[in-house]
Each structure stands twice: as structure tokens, then as C-alpha cells.
Nucleic acid binder design. Structure first.
Lengths: 187, 187
DNA sequence: GTCTATAGATAGATAGAC
DNA sequence: GTCTATCTATCTATAGAC
């Protein structure tokens, strides 16, 4: 792997672990094994490097979810696969975490991939719920978009509560609770 | 208000806006109107000040929720009041946000009030759901603890999605979705 | 109690040699 | 492309005057 690639991957790790504000160019250089010169040759600075790293995180989020949404099984089965996917609950979501970072949200370029990723995933999940309703698999009273947003929120909030408790079990419980509620909407 | 008080309140604001890592002693001093000397006289340092500020945030979270949980109305009505309380969706939760801050989570003293606040709120909400089940207001199939965690997660995740979208409407939609699902469990 | 002065360390970036 | 040297500003804290 070349230096440029190492820099991006090390930045992804550090953004995940420490956020944008908490990550220094020096820390990135040390982890990637690249020097100052390398970093500033390949990227315009900390923000340029972060943009590349965040873009990859966002693309990953989309790719994984899309694979699960288009998998086999009923709508509820596919949603269950998505919600129950193994996640590193105590580390948090590499994309969702960025929403709590003041300097990411203040920079339109850095914020855009985050906004798009969640806009996409909630929209796509809403389509899936709508499909379930049309097929009679889910109750007609279910609001596809609101439910989709609530389900994604359970994941994002599940990370928060799991980190607060210091236990991944809390994340699993949040998902259990959401699926328990969704089950009642099944026909 | 004396300097000590000003320091704590300014720290609460800054922790909310910029997190612990993103808040410098200098910024606290400027906002509070206190100098270096004042700050280090009243507190042991940045972390000591943060401890006082986080403690107040955690106490606030508890006090507000407790007032809503013990209000009048059915269990579902009280939960609805709690979930629909007006919140500054784009600012995020003053307590939940801290779970994403690496230096807060790494310090046992700073982390404790956060852990306790969410442990308390999910536990209390679970009791309320259990009460609803006993009274026949909620379906027997409902898992009180898992549902409680899911509902609090919807709030915490609602903040994340609202900030990602740059719109408080997304927070409201998350709550709508959660209440829509919960409604099906009503007898 | 509060202020100013000071200090070592790090943040984030530039310059220029190789 | 990568490295080292250098730079200004800020971070966090201590010292000591008032």
C-alpha cells in the first residue's frame, strides 16, 4: 500500500476513534508511517485528507446497507438482517459519529457525504417498508418514511447508549426493542 | 452570578457546542469572563470543571424526564409527553453527545455521570412500560427493557439524523415513527 | 479570589533540500 | 514523492503579584 493510501486509511481509523477535532496531522503521520512532506504533497491539509476518509466511510455505509436491502427474503427479513448486522457497538458508527463533531458540521464539504449517506439509507429503507406494505406484508397504518427514520435512529442511538453503558449488549437490546415493535405491524 | 458559577455554565454551553476535546480553557475563560487565575483557583483544571458541568447536565436530564414520567395520564400518554418534549434537535443532547468524546469516555470520573443518567432513564422508562403492561394498557408481548432502550435510542439517534440532514424535522419524524410502532402495542 | 506573566508541548502548515 | 527544518498560534497549566 502506498503512502497516500496509508494516509487515508489511518485517517479513517483516527476519525472513528477520536473524531475530527481530536485528530491531529501529527497523529495521522505517525500511524500511517508517512512524514509531513508526504501528507501535504498528497492532500491540501487535514481537511482534504478527512474529506477522502469520510467519503470512503460514507461509501462503505451505503454499500453494506444496499447489499442487505437487496438480499433475499421478505421485507421484514431483509430489514432484520440490516438491523442485526454485527457492529462494533462500543466504537460507534464511523459516519454517525461525525455528526457530533463541530468542525465537520461547520464545513460544507465535509458535511455533505454524511448528509447524503443518511439521506440515502433512510430513503432506501422507506422504499423497502413501502414495498412491504404494498405486498400486504406490513400493516397499512405504517408510515414508511417515519418508520425508516426511527429504525435508523435506533441504530445510531443504540451506539450512544452502548457507549454510555460500556456494554455492547445495550445496542443489541435497542435492536430487539425495535424489532419487537415492528413485529406487531406484520400481517 | 459569581465567577465560579459563570465558569460552570460557560463550560456547559461549550461542551454542548464543541464537546470536551473541542473546548479549551481559554475559550471557557473568554465566555465566562473569568481569567486563568479564577479558573484554576476554583477547579483543578479543565477536567475538574468539566466534571461539574457534566454533573449538572446529567441532573437536568433526570429531573426533566422524572417530571414527565410521573405526570398525569396513561402510561402511553406520559411516554408521548417525554418523547415529544421540545428539544433543540440540531444542537443534540448535552449528555448523549459526550459519549462520542474520546477523552470523556477515557476518564472514569467524567464518564460515570453519563453512564448513570442513561442507566437511570432507560430503567425508569422500562418500569413505566411494565406498569402499562400490568394495567392491560400495553400488550403482554412487549419487552419493557428492550422497548425502553429502543425508545431512548430513537431520541439519541434522532439527534444524529437531524444534524446529518440539517433539519429538526427529521428528529420529529423519528419520534413519529417510534410512536406509530408503539401504538400497535396498545390494547 | 482574581489578575498577569510565563512556560513547555502540540497544532497545523510552509519551505526547501534531496 | 519524501524528508527535515522551521514557524506562528494555541493548549494546558503553574507562579507569583495584588
Amino acid at each position: 500500500m502506498d503512502k497516500r493510501e496509508q494516509l487515508i486509511e489511518s485517517t479513517r481509523e483516527l476519525l472513528w476513534e477520536r473524531g475530527y477535532v481530536g485528530t491531529s496531522p501529527k497523529a495521522i503521520q505517525e500511524r500511517s508511517g508517512a512524514g509531513q512532506g508526504s501528507m501535504y504533497h498528497h492532500f491540501q491539509g487535514k481537511s482534504g485528507l478527512a474529506l477522502a476518509a469520510i467519503g470512503r466511510n460514507a461509501d462503505d455505509l451505503r454499500a453494506r446497507a444496499e447489499a442487505e436491502f437487496t438480499g433475499s427474503g421478505t421485507v421484514v427479513e431483509r430489514i432484520t438482517v440490516y438491523l442485526r448486522r454485527e457492529r462494533d457497538a462500543l466504537k460507534g458508527c464511523p459516519v454517525g459519529k461525525l455528526t457530533q463533531d463541530p468542525d465537520v458540521m461547520a464545513d460544507a464539504d465535509l458535511r455533505k457525504p454524511v448528509e447524503e449517506a443518511f439521506g440515502w439509507v433512510t430513503g432506501r429503507l422507506a422504499e423497502l417498508l413501502e414495498e412491504g406494505r404494498e405486498k400486504g406484508e406490513l400493516d397499512a397504518s405504517l408510515d414508511p418514511l417515519a418508520t425508516a427514520i426511527a429504525l435508523v435512529a435506533v441504530l445510531q442511538g443504540g451506539y450512544v447508549l452502548a457507549r454510555a453503558a460500556g456494554s455492547p449488549d445495550v445496542f443489541a437490546k435497542a435492536v430487539d426493542g425495535a424489532l419487537g415493535l415492528l413485529a406487531t405491524k406484520e400481517n
